[in-house]
């Protein structure tokens, strides 16, 4: 399924798992995707490892450096996805420089060829994307996903909603990834976006690590995104399939049972 089909088919309790490509080992990506698909995760965010991941906290930074040491490159990620296709909705997440060096058009084409539906590039601002790159993304049917935070003004959220074609990524708190202080404080933000009745689905990410975080997010918006907590889970895994299944069962409790 592609992303659009997922959202047409299911409106609530969606789960998106972030995994760093090339992590824990160079060729693990297809195994990870397959295990996530079999555990009924709705979509995956495939992280493109980068030497300077500015929006990420220590966990994802470490996974990025390890994957780079393993020898992962963007070209290899696409090749792995091509050679071992897994029918789960796919999003690519990375930093603009990786895509810029690969070549924007070449990147979009490869995404289309391997069935990637959308892209998250946190350091490519909306304004520059629209002006310089949107047309190429449109040509290849690739959606760009924009972030909003508790600090984003209502006016800007509405603008982002107009320009989005897939979902909006709501960042739970203004900060880097991987904090674990709980999500109670984010209820105000969740309430605000719920009441705005935006046209696009909303997925919330950052700091979601416990089953109760997921429950809370699912009360307000369409779905949740888990990154650092998942990365920690598979860091030392010797049986990815087993560890991923048990992590998903734990985090979702009965919700998907």
């Amino acid at each position: 399924m592609n992303l659009e089909q997922v959202f047409n088919f299911k409106k609530n309790n969606l789960l998106n798992i972030y995994c760093t490509a090339g992590y824990p080992n160079l060729k693990d990506l297809p195994t990870v995707l397959k295990a996530l698909h079999e555990a009924e995760v709705d979509m995956v965010e495939i992280g493109i490892p980068y030497s300077d991941p500015l929006s990420d906290g220590p966990t994802i930074q470490a996974s990025n450096s390890r994957a780079l040491k393993n020898g992962i490159t963007l070209k290899r990620i696409f090749d792995q996805l091509e050679q071992h296709p897994v029918p789960i909705a796919k999003i690519m997440m990375g930093y603009f420089n990786s895509v810029f060096q690969f070549g924007i058009e070449r990147f979009c084409r490869r995404c289309q060829e391997v069935g990637v539906s959308a892209v998250i590039l946190p350091d490519l601002p909306l304004e520059i994307f629209i002006k310089k790159y949107k047309k190429t993304f449109d040509d290849f049917g690739l959606s760009m996903i924009f972030l909003i935070t508790p600090e984003t003004s209502e006016e800007r959220i509405r603008q982002i909603d107009q320009l989005s074609t897939s979902f909006i990524y709501a960042v739970s708190q203004s900060g880097t990834t991987g904090k674990t202080q709980g999500l109670e404080f984010t209820r105000t933000f969740l309430g605000k976006i719920k009441n705005m009745n935006l046209k696009n689905p909303i997925m919330m990410g950052f700091s979601i690590s416990q089953p109760e975080d997921l429950t809370l997010v699912h009360q307000y918006v369409n779905g949740a995104i888990i990154g650092s907590a998942f990365i920690r889970q598979i860091e030392k895994s010797t049986d990815l399939k087993k560890d991923i299944t048990s992590f998903i069962q734990h985090i979702t409790q009965k919700q998907f049972a």
Partner: peptide, 19 residues
């Protein structure tokens, strides 16, 4: 006006820093 010197410059910041 957009903060570029020719092709260089700009503000390639994550949304968290936008405000």
């Amino acid at each position: 006006e957009e903060g570029f010197y020719g092709e260089f410059g700009g503000a390639f910041i994550p949304e968290m820093l936008y405000p």
